[in-house]
């Protein structure tokens, strides 16, 4: 039953990620129009509550989505089961959240 809830969480985060990824890709195309520089990126993001929320949500959704996906990959290709699998997937997701939050903080704060 636990993995059914993980399935639901992965699908719900996919719903969240789909529009965010499209905006993110469009932003990449838009951002390089005038050359890609740290000053240009920080000028847009520093102190921006909107971009902070956008990428904050992005990081959380991506971390949950990817950790559940990696759990399935490990279970199927490494035949991994039990608490080791659950702990590793959880650590992987938390690592993504920490790394992502650090990156968001670096460009927003």
């Amino acid at each position: 039953m636990w993995s059914s809830y993980l399935y639901v969480a992965q699908r719900l985060t996919a719903f969240v990620l789909a529009p965010l990824v499209l905006v993110h890709l469009a932003l990449i195309v838009f951002a390089v129009q005038d050359g890609l520089s740290a000053a240009e990126i920080l000028g847009r993001t520093r102190g921006s509550l909107g971009w902070g929320c956008f990428y904050g949500i992005f990081v959380v959704a991506a971390a949950i989505h990817a950790a559940i996906g990696m759990r399935s990959v490990a279970a199927e290709f490494l035949r991994w089961r039990g608490w080791g699998l659950e702990a590793s997937a959880t650590c992987f997701g938390l690592s993504l959240i920490v790394l992502g939050a650090r990156a968001v903080a670096a460009v927003v704060l």
């Binding site: 039953m1 636990w2 993995s3 059914s4 399935y7 399935s72």
Partner: peptide
């Protein structure tokens, strides 16, 4: 539905 929602179930 509970049976097919188990860890060996349909979402695999």
């Amino acid at each position: 539905l509970a049976a097919v929602a188990g860890d060996a179930g349909c979402h695999n």
